[in-house]
Every structure is written in structure tokens, then in C-alpha cells.
Amino acid sequence: MKLTELMTTELVETELKGTTRDEIIEELIHKLDNEGSIKSKRKFKKAILAREKEGSTGIGYEIAIPHGKSKAVTEPRVIFGKKASGVDWNSADGTLAKLIFMIAVPQENQGDDHLKILQILSRKLMNEEFREQLLQVESNEEAYNLLEEIE
């Protein structure tokens, strides 16, 4: 399975507009809603914020991975957003989050394939070179092509 099977070109945004964590979460959820993989924006947002409350998903290395498992999600999806100037995500190492991967996972078990690919993405993000490449992308298309390599 490829990571891009959980994404579409619409689900990549290299120039996020929001300037706070909550604005960016709102912006990404809006995109997800337009794409049609969530039934209720409100319910999914609740799941995302509940996870943030348990502990920030700003994992450092300028990355945040807000994620939610919810009945409101119909298909597993990943959205990638970039904020070149960074946003405070209360990250473990104090860095501002510039690379944001929002992950939406359905409540019911749909097999392990999507979980395995997210596992590979997580491991890949620990690779400095890969992060550097992501920070340098200038268009949505370029970002999508880079993420297409993950399988």
C-alpha cells in the first residue's frame, strides 16, 4: 500500500493560512470535509482535540501529527499541510511546527493496511533528510510526489 492511497492532491496544502494551532486544525478539517471522508466536522474535531489534550501531538523536529479515531471518519485519510513560518504546537522540543500531518482513522476496524502505512510514515519522519526535503517543497504537486514514495 502507498501512503498516497490515503491521500489526494486536494489533501496537500503547502501554504497554510492559519496562524494558530486551532486555526490550522480547523483549516485541515475543512479540507477533509470537502474531500468527503468525514461525516461530521464537529465530531471529528472533538476527537482531534481530545487527543491533543492527552498530550500534544507536536512531536518536535518541526512536525505535528494531530490525529483522531472517530465514527465520523468513513475512510482513513492523511492530509499534509506546511506552514513555512511555523506555529506553536506546544511541541516536546520547543520547536514550532512547520510540517503538519493530520490523520483520520475510522472507529471500526478496516484491516491493518492503513495502520501499517501510517507506521511507515511515522518511521520515515524520523529521517532528517526526508524532513528537509519536505520543508523545501514549493508546490502541492511537489509535496504529493515526494509523499508518493512512501509505501
Binding site: H67, K69, L115, L118, S122, R123
Partner: peptide, 17 residues
């Protein structure tokens, strides 16, 4: 980690490295 989607594997990756 609580959701077991990302952090678990990031930590595993870095510990291995």
C-alpha cells in the same frame, strides 16, 4: 502510546537508530 498510530513507531525508529 494512547492511539498507537504514530508515536509508538517514531519512538521505535529512533531507539533503533
Amino acid at each position: 502510546c494512547p492511539n498507537g498510530i504514530a508515536h509508538t513507531y517514531m519512538a521505535a525508529e529512533n531507539l533503533q537508530k
